[in-house]
Design a protein around this nucleic acid. Structure first.
Lengths: 339, 339
DNA sequence: CTAAATTGCTTAACCGATTAATAAAGATTA
DNA sequence: TAATCTTTATTAATCGGTTAAGCAATTTAG
């Protein structure tokens, strides 16, 4: 900018104003500066310098509890990111994807650039403490965090609603649950009584509580050994667990899955084992990812408006009301796997 | 940093060295600085200031020809981004997602931060010219760009291979193509003779050329009015086109789809119309996205190693050999929709 | 016609680091 | 013991902008 200013015979302040504050100079001079500086190969201010001086960068940091690549592989995270990205683009903000697992100094550097953060905890909202010390606005999604704003859903109620729907049927005698991250183990397993007694506020536990409440209301029981724990939301893991559940005896008549990825895996396994859905087993999901409407048969599930969640989180952050705690509505989506 | 230095009774240079060049001060002093500065609430250098001075930021920019949210919604882009993200995290780089469609000055600012760029053209590699003027290293994926490095596949050969495989069957008389972005139109339509004569180096055209070559080799023809143009790679659009193709007369016996998203849509439509796959129609895809192996029946397709593509692009960029032009191998993946 | 307000541009301090050059102190060598 | 080398820490310039304050020149108001 200094060179450009010298070439054009004006001060750097004027060049700066040409780009940032059009009212500070004559329209004529402004146009000359914009035109001639472009000719000289200067197209606009440097971001590092600008944000150093201004104290803001126009960059929003998004950080996931899981690895960055998770944001591209999990359909739920995906939709959330889509919503976030849409709003940021509309507001001409850049999106910086932050990874965890760096040293304190690296973290600190990375976190020094963004003007604010969106944190996504998925099923384990922790590892974000250091974000606090930046003092910048933060909006979290799917968990609660200090006095930051948050976007959440009522997991217990959503789970209750779909379980209630499933358990009102005639043949509700054998209920099984394919749960996601219910306990702290990286292996697929069935729960034991003591697992259940460990208190937890994880969203998967809330969903389980919703299932339980619906079961109680319908006077059926969910045996502990019919509750599976799946460590991550991947189709492969889910298929393994689904195969266990659908080959266990007695055969479940209702299979409550804590995510659509799991439910879709269950549908594939049922198909493979020639188990009719919903004829022999009713299957429910959670999330309402795009694929849920395209499966055969289409999946009955709970819509948690992930796109909207992302949009809302980004909007809250940008509009500065990042103290609000919002609970989005879930919607029961009845398709074919459980009518 | 200035405050911290003053508090600890050392110079700012020493504090800086404590974080960046441990060999420049005694281990004892370094530890004291790291410890006490953290106590004072200072955890490491500010990124804007650092990159202003150093001329590098540790941030890599990724830019898509399509909108940013496309990178989260399209399965192919998704896998590519996953590969990129993995390598960047391994190398402790941050990932900045850049959107196009900004003013020149905004572009320029946004582009001033990253140390290098990965450009993904998908099916339309343009709108990236301004990146050149940064003079920073660039690696592009799925198209060619100035004298930058690139990661590509042989689309023509990949398409030839799968078409060849499909057309060697007995009933190869009626071939139809569900093409992606074959012409410049946002509507689904069949091609006309003049569309074909318009020269183009878009990857979809290369795939079409591969189909054509295979058809010729097998002495069958692909009628122009059996080639559909689909403007974007979305399940919804694809289903519409697939429905047209699968209700057209005569019914195609081979349906060559230019993406897995399209092929999977075709499978759904075929199922809905009670058309047996591969019994009545053989269906082929392209890409080998994760869903391709999970459909019923599993999709026969061309694997283009998207994850590897992303990893390679990122690696090339970081290792500085960003002039190389790499063509990755495609692999024929024969599953059930076309054996 | 003069005082006040406005317009248009410049000066200079500052944002928070990095690093070459330099100096002081301590260790080693002749 | 003096000369030289190392180690350790400091000084000060610099990265590329932004913006409050200031100063002419011009316009408006009285």
């Amino acid at each position: 900018m200094k060179q450009v200013a010298a070439q054009l015979g004006v001060s750097t302040a004027t060049v700066s104003n040409a780009y940032n504050r059009p009212d500070q100079l004559s329209e004529k001079l402004r146009e000359r500066i914009l035109r001639e500086s472009a000719e000289l190969g200067y197209y606009g201010p440097n971001l590092a310098a600008r944000s150093l001086r201004r104290g803001e960068s126009g960059v929003i940091g998004v950080m996931l509890a899981d690895s960055i690549s998770y944001s591209f592989s999990d359909p739920v995270a995906n939709q959330l990111m889509q919503g976030i990205a849409e709003v940021l683009v509309e507001n001409k903000k850049q999106l910086l994807l932050l990874s965890s697992g760096m040293t304190s100094a690296e973290q600190s550097s990375a976190e020094s650039l963004p003007d604010g953060f969106i944190l996504y905890g998925a099923l384990q909202g922790n590892g974000f403490e250091h974000i606090k010390r930046t003092g910048k606005p933060v909006v979290v999604v799917d968990f609660e965090f200090a006095d930051s704003g948050s976007v959440n859903i009522d997991n217990e109620q959503g789970a209750y609603n779909i379980a209630e729907h499933a358990l009102q049927k005639e043949d509700n005698s054998q209920v099984a649950v394919l749960g996601l991250r219910l306990i702290d183990s990286s292996r697929i397993c069935r729960l034991s009584q003591e697992d259940l007694s460990m208190p937890s506020q994880e969203i998967s536990r809330l969903r389980l509580a919703g299932y339980m409440r619906a079961a109680e209301a319908n006077k059926v029981s969910i045996p502990v050994d019919k509750i599976w724990h799946i460590p991550i939301n991947s189709p492969e893991k889910a298929e393994v667990a689904a195969r266990e559940a659908l080959t266990s005896s007695p055969l479940p008549t209702v299979l409550l899955c804590m995510s659509d990825v799991i439910a879709l895996a269950a549908l594939r396994v049922a198909n493979e084992l020639n188990i009719a859905v919903p004829g022999q087993v009713q299957v429910t999901g959670f999330d309402d990812i795009p694929e849920a409407s395209r499966s055969t048969p289409p999946l009955s599930t709970v819509c948690q408006q992930n796109l909207e969640k992302g949009r809302l989180a980004a909007t809250m952050l940008l509009e500065g009301n990042s103290k609000e705690k919002v609970i989005l509505e879930t919607r029961l989506v009845v398709r074919q796997t459980c009518k």
